[in-house]
């Protein structure tokens, strides 16, 4: 357990110290919050009704931005090779990386979502339900990102391809996320969507570290 916390603390510390990627992430998310309303036009009721969909799309796109950084830093500086002789198995290490990725990517985006809510003139009730769905849905996206990052860790141009691999697989999360946040057919449908969303997050988070560990081991050969 000591090694588990050591890795978690180290990665969070180095992420916060080299804060560059956090600011670019939030800047990208905010710029989406600016461009979309400008493109759609200042028609408030339309923006309000599109709110949850735009926020979910914004969060998905923003979280795909820095996704290849998850393993590349450790791969390039030799830490990944040294982990082989540490107390942690590769899947535990991937699980820590998943937690760190969620904390440094999805959480800041969720914290910033109220600002997006203001830009998209969403009422408080919808904003809160969107943030709830984001909280339940982003682990699934983080899990997919983890596997895609592991797959493309040893590629020279890996950074470009990882988001393409995640996008189609993240569609169910977006469907249930927006479906839960903006129920068309009443509250009943929001509950089912929330249940599907959380189930998916749990399953993806459970399996992703093993898939990522396998991908890492294979691409190190």
């Amino acid at each position: 357990m000591r090694a588990f916390w050591a890795l978690l603390v180290r990665d969070l510390k180095s992420a916060s110290r080299a804060g560059g990627s956090l600011t670019t992430l939030l800047a990208f998310y905010l710029s989406l919050g600016v461009i979309l309303p400008i493109a759609i036009g200042p028609d408030k009721p339309l923006l309000a009704s599109l709110g949850p969909a735009l926020i979910w799309t914004g969060v998905l796109l923003s979280s795909l931005l820095g996704l290849d950084r998850i393993f590349v830093a450790d791969h390039e500086d030799g830490s990944l090779a040294a982990f082989r002789h540490s107390r942690l198995s590769l899947s535990t290490i991937s699980f820590v990386k998943l937690i760190v990725h969620w904390l440094t990517t999805a959480l800041p985006l969720i914290v910033l979502t109220p600002v997006m809510g203001v830009l998209l003139t969403i009422d408080l009730q919808t904003l809160l339900s969107v943030m709830l769905t984001l909280l339940l849905g982003t682990p699934a996206i983080a899990a997919l990102s983890l596997v895609a990052a592991a797959l493309s860790v040893s590629l020279k141009r890996g950074a470009v391809i990882a988001p393409i691999l995640v996008m189609p697989l993240a569609i169910p999360a977006v469907i249930f996320g927006v479906g839960a946040a903006k129920p068309l057919l009443g509250a009943g449908q929001a509950e089912t969507a929330l249940l599907y969303l959380s189930a998916m997050s749990l399953v993806f988070v459970a399996f992703a570290p093993f898939a990522a560990a396998l991908a890492l081991r294979l691409s190190q050969e």
């Binding site: 596997v147 697989l169 569609i171 469907i175």
Partner: peptide, 19 residues
């Protein structure tokens, strides 16, 4: 690995798109 990850996700995608 990606093919198998995809294979696992296709039924989920089908289900969510139909829903």
């Amino acid at each position: 690995v990606l093919t198998l990850v995809g294979a696992v996700n296709i039924p989920i995608i089908k289900f969510s798109v139909d829903w």
